[in-house]
Simulated scan of single mutants.
Amino acid sequence: MIKCEEITVYSTVSQREGNVTSDMAGEKVLFNVDKGKYYNLGSIGGEIWGELKDPIRVSNLIDILIEKFEVSRDVCEDEVIRFLTMLDSEELLNKHN
């Protein structure tokens, strides 16, 4: 198992290269070319993935999502960090200093 650095609201993250995305019935599906593995990101996960095209601080990502969706900051922060941690554990993210 790969040990990942903890992702916090102060982390800056972006998409790792080598992934192809597609829209399927309103949901974003990601294919990792290196692993030959598919991921269904869903609609909100797809929104998050799109924001990761360029490096972004997690706190700024949360601000964007709060503007787009009716969600409290606490819930959004918990869900975004959980989602980004999953992406990181699958080696789909770059983390920047």
Rank of each mutant, 00 (worst) to 15 (best):
I2T: 12
I2Y: 11
K3Y: 13
K3G: 09
K3S: 14
C4Q: 08
C4V: 10
C4N: 09
E5Y: 12
E5N: 14
E5P: 01
I7H: 01
T8F: 15
V9H: 02
Y10A: 15
Y10S: 15
S11H: 03
T12G: 07
V13W: 03
S14N: 05
Q15C: 14
Q15P: 01
Q15F: 09
E17M: 10
E17V: 07
N19K: 08
V20G: 05
T21W: 04
T21Q: 04
S22W: 01
S22K: 05
S22P: 00
S22E: 06
D23C: 04
M24Q: 12
M24P: 00
K28Q: 05
V29F: 12
F31I: 04
N32D: 15
N32G: 06
D34N: 14
D34Y: 12
G36H: 09
K37N: 06
K37Y: 10
Y38L: 14
Y38P: 02
Y39M: 09
N40W: 08
L41E: 02
G42A: 14
G42F: 04
I44R: 02
G45S: 04
G46L: 02
E47F: 13
E47H: 08
E47L: 13
I48T: 01
W49M: 03
G50V: 05
G50A: 11
E51N: 10
L52D: 03
K53R: 13
D54P: 00
I56T: 10
I56M: 13
V58A: 11
V58C: 12
V58G: 07
S59G: 09
N60T: 08
N60F: 13
I62N: 03
D63H: 10
E67I: 04
K68Y: 08
F69D: 03
F69P: 01
V71E: 01
V71M: 11
V71F: 04
V71A: 07
R73N: 12
D74M: 11
D74S: 15
V75D: 13
E77V: 08
D78E: 15
D78Q: 12
E79A: 13
E79H: 08
E79T: 06
E79G: 03
E79F: 06
V80S: 01
V80P: 00
R82G: 12
R82N: 14
F83K: 01
F83I: 03
L84V: 06
T85Y: 08
M86P: 00
M86E: 00
L87R: 01
D88I: 00
D88G: 04
S89D: 13
S89R: 11
S89V: 03
E91R: 06
E91M: 08
E91I: 03
L92D: 00
L92E: 00
L93A: 04
N94D: 07
K95T: 12
K95L: 15
H96V: 07
H96L: 11
N97I: 09
